[in-house]
Amino acid sequence: MTDTMIDSIDDSGSFAAYVAEPEGKTRAAIVVIQEIFGVNAGIRRKCDRLAAEGYLAVAPDLFRRIAPGVQLDPDVEPEFKKALDLMGKFDQDAGIRDIQATINAARAMIDGGKVGVVGYCLGGRLAYMTAARTDIDASVGYYAVGIDGLLHEKEAIAHPLMLHIAGEDGFVDKATQQAMHDGLGDRPNVVLHDYPGEDHGFATETGNRRSDAAAELADSRTMAFFAEHLG
């Protein structure tokens, strides 16, 4: 497990990414997209767990333009507030360019093999945008925010997408959840999973937001999805 540098695709310089490599044969690569808390201990642990399953996992520092290297704890109120402030300043289109650069780098690391993406919260939204705007092979988003405002991009989703929806998400209301089902439910390459009673952040690795049973169910579905579409 180490940090590496990735070359941008928009002449904005290189940026850091956390990389977790499997011990044996690499099945495929997965780009792990951060929450609003940066590439913190939880995101690094997500990468380590994917590496244990045989995937090369890469988590780019998407806040590098506004707070490079930031790592925040969502259970610490001042840090949570700082994360919300960073989200407001974050350029999502630039973030997608950095994700594409990471996809390119990850694909090169595995000699042109398949690359997937998994994201959480803001990262879940970016996973959806990645599915619509890049050459990713498979995408998973957990409790993605604001998807109702991105449904016009659904026709561009060429490869499989899975979204995990928290039923009592404090950041994604019932109307938005319904809009996701209405807009995406009939798409042959999109799978939606609902988690009744669960709140935003239920699949975090540690901390107060985690809900073990729901997290384990969602993660098992994610791993099966990647096994099917990435190998």
Rank of each mutant, 00 (worst) to 15 (best):
M1E: 12
T4D: 06
I6H: 11
I6C: 12
I6G: 12
S8D: 10
D10W: 09
S14R: 04
F15P: 13
A17I: 00
Y18G: 00
V19Q: 09
A20D: 02
P22F: 05
E23M: 04
E23G: 14
R27L: 15
A29C: 10
A29E: 06
V31K: 04
I36S: 15
N40T: 08
A41E: 13
A41V: 10
R49E: 13
L50I: 06
L50W: 08
A51R: 09
A52P: 02
E53T: 08
E53S: 13
G54L: 06
G54D: 07
G54R: 02
L56S: 11
L56T: 11
V58A: 07
V58Y: 05
A59K: 06
F63R: 02
R64P: 05
I66V: 09
I66P: 07
I66A: 03
I66Q: 02
A67V: 12
E79G: 09
F80W: 14
K81N: 15
K82H: 15
D85C: 03
G88P: 08
F90A: 12
G95T: 01
I99N: 03
A101S: 15
I103T: 14
I103R: 11
N104G: 04
N104H: 05
A108F: 08
A108L: 11
M109C: 03
M109G: 04
K114G: 13
K114M: 13
V115Y: 09
V117E: 05
V118F: 07
V118H: 07
Y120T: 07
R125L: 14
R125H: 12
A127Y: 01
A127H: 00
A127S: 11
Y128D: 01
M129D: 03
T130W: 02
R133T: 04
R133G: 05
T134Q: 11
D135E: 08
D135Q: 03
I136S: 08
A138M: 03
V140M: 07
Y143W: 10
V145R: 02
G146N: 13
G146A: 14
G149Q: 07
G149W: 00
L151I: 06
H152C: 07
E155H: 13
A156L: 14
A156C: 09
I157Y: 09
P160T: 04
M162V: 11
L163D: 04
I165A: 10
A166K: 01
E168N: 14
D169W: 13
D169K: 09
D169M: 10
G170H: 14
D173R: 00
A175L: 12
A175Y: 10
Q177R: 14
A179E: 13
M180T: 07
D182Q: 15
D182E: 15
G183H: 01
L184D: 03
L184H: 02
G185N: 09
D186A: 02
R187V: 07
V190Y: 09
L192S: 10
H193R: 08
D194P: 14
D199V: 12
D199F: 10
T204S: 15
E205I: 15
T206L: 06
G207T: 00
R209W: 12
S211W: 00
A213S: 02
A213D: 06
A214N: 03
E216C: 05
L217K: 00
L217N: 00
A218Q: 04
S220T: 11
T222A: 10
A224M: 00
F225A: 04
F225R: 01
F225H: 04
E228P: 06
H229F: 13
H229L: 02
L230V: 01
G231Y: 00
G231P: 06
G231H: 01
